[in-house]
Write a protein that binds this DNA or RNA. Structure first.
Lengths: 91, 91, 91, 91
DNA sequence: CACTGGAAAATGCCGC
DNA sequence: GCGGCATTTTCCAGTG
C-alpha cells in the first residue's frame, strides 16, 4: 500500500540528510581545527573552491572580468586590477 | 608553514565534500525513483522540510518560551503581549 | 560593448546600495535608541522577525493547504495523511 | 506608557525594513536588465564588490592566497600567477 | 577578540 | 535555456 511506501521514502531521505549533515559537521570541524593551527579558513575555502572549479571556466571568467574592468578604466597595471582578476578564480 | 599540513587539510576537506556530494546524489535518486512510483517530488520535499521544521521547533520551544517571558517584562499587559502569550500556547 | 552603459549600470547599483546601507544604519540607530530606553534589542529583533514570519505564513497558508490536499492524493487515507490534515487545521 | 513606545519602535523598524527590501528589489532589477543587455550579472557583482572592498585588504588576502597556493604547487606554472606575485611585491 | 546567531548573497535545481 | 525558488554558503554585528 502507498502509505508504507511513502513512509519508507521519507525516512530514507531523512536518513541520508542526517548523514549529509554529519559530514558537513566534519568539514566544519576541519576548518576549525585548521584555524587553530594558524590557517585562515576563508582562504582555505577559496583554495578548495578554486581546485574544484573547471579550469577553462576560470580562464573564461577572467577574460570577461578583465574586459569589463578595462571598460571602466580600472585595469591598467594596478595591483587592485590584478587582484580583481585573481578574485574571479575564487568566486 | 608546513606544506604537508596544508595539503593534508585540503585533501581531507575535499574527501568529505566528495562524500557529501555522493549522498546528495543518493537523495536526488530517491526523489527520482519516488516520482516514477507516482509520488510528486515537490510535495515530498515539502513534507520533508515540514517535518524538519517541526522537529527544530520542538527543540527550541523552551527557548522561545523563555524569550516570551522576557519580552513580557518589556510589554507589560498590552494587546501585543497578550497575542504573544496566545501564540506560545498555540505553538 | 558600451563603456558608458557599463559605467551607468555599476553606478546605479552602487547608488542603490548606498541607499540601502543608509537605511540599515537607520534601523541600527533605532535599536540603539530603544536599548537606551530599556528595550532589549535582542528581544525586539525576535519580535520583528516573528511578525514578519507570521505575515509570510498567512500569505502562504493557502499554498500550504493546497500542498496538503495534493499530498493526500498520494497518501490515500493513512495515519500520516490524517495527521497532515490536523496540522493544516492548526496552523 | 511603554506599550505605545514599543509599538512605535517596532513599526518604525518595520517601515525601514520595507524600504530596504524595496531598494534590494531595485538592485535585482538592474542586474536583470543588465543581463538582458548582455552583461553577465555574476561579473558585474564581482566588479561592484571589488570597488567596495578596501584596497589594502584585497592586497593582503591576495598575498595569503598566493602563499597557500604556492605551498600546494598550484601557482608555479601559471604566468599570470607569477605576474600577480611580482606585482604584489612591488606594490 | 574569538564565537555565535541571524541577515544577505550565491549557488544549484526545478519547472516552463 | 531561462527564470524562479529553495538550499546552502558567506558575511557581519552583537556578545561574553
Amino acid at each position: 500500500m502507498s502509505n508504507n511506501q511513502l513512509k519508507a521514502i521519507v525516512e530514507r531521505i531523512e536518513a541520508l540528510e542526517d548523514d549529509k549533515a554529519i559530514i558537513a559537521e566534519g568539514i566544519k570541524d576541519i576548518y576549525t581545527e585548521a584555524k587553530s593551527n594558524g590557517f585562515d579558513p576563508k582562504i582555505l575555502k577559496q583554495i578548495v573552491a578554486l581546485r574544484k572549479k573547471d579550469a577553462a571556466k576560470v580562464a573564461e571568467e577572467k577574460v570577461l572580468l578583465a574586459t569589463y574592468m578595462d571598460a571602466l578604466g580600472m585595469l591598467a597595471d594596478t595591483p587592485l586590477g590584478q587582484a580583481a582578476i585573481e578574485r574571479v578564480s575564487r568566486s
